[in-house]
């Protein structure tokens, strides 16, 4: 009698767990994209929305990050913000920097508190959050025939002025991609949006990149350094 009761309980229980597992597995992934598991979940990183300095390549970032929020708490400029579940799904709680709201000033405090190696300690010069791209159709100095302005704000604010941004004989800025850290200070302070023809567009965008692309840095070599 007692044994029978036990078996029944077990069956019920197995049903409940199996159901829970199956429904959970089915609802949590996009079935149309099951062909390639790598693309099942799309990263919310896009132009001007970047990972904090020292971040490992994006495909490893959300796997390593445990969303403890320590990088955001030590950031003295409060540049680091966090995705929530509505905009980023399983990337919820991972840090990002929106350079148009507040760029990164490369104080390098966050990399030393990360407990999981998502942000790897590195020096200022080695940071590769992205790369600045100048839109020459919008930049007021590049269009000086039309605007008659000579602005070199981006050159003045760049922490690596003369190394990452150079200006030619007409004060027209250009980016040395190998040296650009992607901190976004130039994009934040660009004044091209105030020129009436640009309709609020800034001339500089920070494009997110993989470290590899510029410096051939793999996850392995990042860990050893």
């Amino acid at each position: 009698m007692k044994k029978e009761k036990n078996t029944k309980g077990r069956r019920e229980f197995l049903k409940v767990t199996l159901g829970m597992f199956l429904s959970g597995a089915l609802t949590s992934c996009d079935l149309s994209q099951l062909k390639n598991p790598r693309t099942m979940i799309k990263s919310p990183i896009r132009p001007n929305i970047l990972r904090p300095p020292g971040a490992v390549p994006e495909e490893h970032f959300a796997q390593k990050c445990i969303r403890c929020g320590r990088c955001g708490e030590v950031c003295p400029y409060h540049s680091i913000k966090y995705f929530d579940v509505k905009e980023a799904g399983v990337f919820s709680g991972t840090p990002y920097i929106n350079v148009m709201e507040k760029p990164c000033y490369l104080c390098m405090k966050c990399v030393y508190v990360c407990p999981t190696g998502s942000l790897v300690p590195c020096s200022k010069e080695d940071v590769r959050m992205g790369v600045a791209v100048i839109n020459r159709q919008i930049c007021v100095t590049w269009q000086q025939q039309k605007t008659g302005l000579m602005c070199k704000t981006c050159f003045d604010v760049c922490p690596f002025a003369g190394i990452a941004i150079k200006i030619d004989h007409d004060f027209r800025p250009y980016i040395i991609e190998e040296n650009c850290t992607g901190c976004g200070i130039c994009a934040y302070s660009c004044i091209a949006d105030t020129w009436y023809e640009n309709k609020g567009k800034k001339a500089i965008t920070i494009m997110p990149i993989k470290w590899k692309k510029i410096k051939e840095v793999s996850l392995k070599s990042v860990k050893n350094s």
Binding site: T17, M20, F21, G24, A25, S28, C29, P37, M40, I41, A62, Q63, C65, I66, R67, V85, V90, F91, S92, G93
Partner: peptide
């Protein structure tokens, strides 16, 4: 076990958020 399996199927840690 379900949590760990889901985590590994999706490939991203879930309990962290």
């Amino acid at each position: 076990v379900t949590e760990l399996m889901l985590t590994m199927i999706i490939g991203y840690p879930l309990f962290v958020w």
